[in-house]
Design a protein around this nucleic acid. Structure first.
Length: 263
DNA sequence: GGTCCGACCTGGCAGC
DNA sequence: TGCTGCCAGGTCGGAC
């Protein structure tokens, strides 16, 4: 499930392609709203991450944006058993980029008018201070976990890292954001940055071993799953207090927590 | 305006 | 072995 660390890992794997020319784009899924001819001949001038978007800056001032959603990924090579999930191939003057999108939830779009989505602050932005997070979380009575994964408020967090950050900050994901005090918000900010930083260092989280699970642009698994405290560990002992990790459902999504040490 | 919830999508997997 | 139904979750749009 690509969240900020996985998307950042993709971007780092794609940066060597800066300067490459797009020779041809083969759109294999008609549901993707992209004309291959519109980008052929463009030069990749930069690759960056915006929240969970992978953004290619092309010559002519245009940007090509991918959102991987749940199971999408960009790869420099594609194994034979995954070719049936390739929805788009970008042929460059040095190599290819495969858009592997098994559930067809991932999207791609081209813009001539800059980045078109309204995103909240990035946790690695210099302005992401304790005060900044306080303004975000105390403005809503929604459960704090729902606030953290709302991309209009905070860009980049998803189900895995929101659960992990809340565990590290010892905060119950069901509490209303507006009910958090100054110390708790400061702890939460520190936990968010720390969890994301470590996950990037480990090239993201790969929870399973199927075509749906995350791999980087070279097909390698992430390594942060070994450091998850609660996500996907229902029934296992909390690493801090040994209480069994619980799974609850919030907004139709699984949330994992330790009810004893998250208050 | 804020909040909640269903739909989208489809491979994997458990249960029968 | 094959079928059925549930689960996964980021985003969007509609309802309240």
């Amino acid at each position: 499930m690509p969240e900020l660390p996985e998307v950042e890992t993709f971007v780092r794997g794609l940066r060597p392609l800066v300067g490459a020319t797009i020779r041809r784009v083969e759109v294999l899924d008609p549901r993707l709203e992209l004309s291959g001819r519109a980008v052929a001949g463009s030069v990749i001038e930069a690759v960056e991450r915006r929240g969970k978007y992978i953004v290619f800056h092309l010559s002519g001032g245009r940007i090509l944006m991918f959102h991987l959603r749940m199971s999408g990924r960009l790869a420099r090579t594609c194994p034979d058993n995954e070719m049936r999930f390739v929805r788009l191939i970008v042929e460059l003057d040095r190599g290819e980029i495969y858009f592997i999108n098994p559930r067809r939830l991932g999207t791609v779009c081209l813009s001539s008018d800059g980045f078109p989505h309204r995103l909240g602050i990035d946790p690695f932005d210099d302005e992401f201070s304790p005060d900044c997070l306080t303004r975000i979380v105390t403005a809503s009575r929604m459960p704090i976990k729902s606030i953290l994964i709302d991309q209009r408020r905070l860009a980049g967090l998803g189900n895995i890292y929101a659960a992990e950050a809340l565990w590290h900050a010892r905060i119950d994901p069901r509490r209303p954001g507006a009910g958090l005090n100054e110390d708790e918000v400061a702890r939460l900010r520190e936990a968010i940055v720390d969890v994301l930083t470590r996950a990037i260092e480990h090239m993201g989280t790969t929870t399973g071993d199927t075509v749906l699970d995350y791999r980087d642009t070279g097909g390698r698994r992430g390594g942060f799953q070994a450091y998850l405290a609660v996500y996907g560990r229902q029934g296992e002992a909390c690493p801090r207090c040994s209480e069994a990790v619980e799974r609850i459902v919030q907004g139709g999504r699984s949330t994992y927590l330790c009810s004893r040490c998250q208050r």
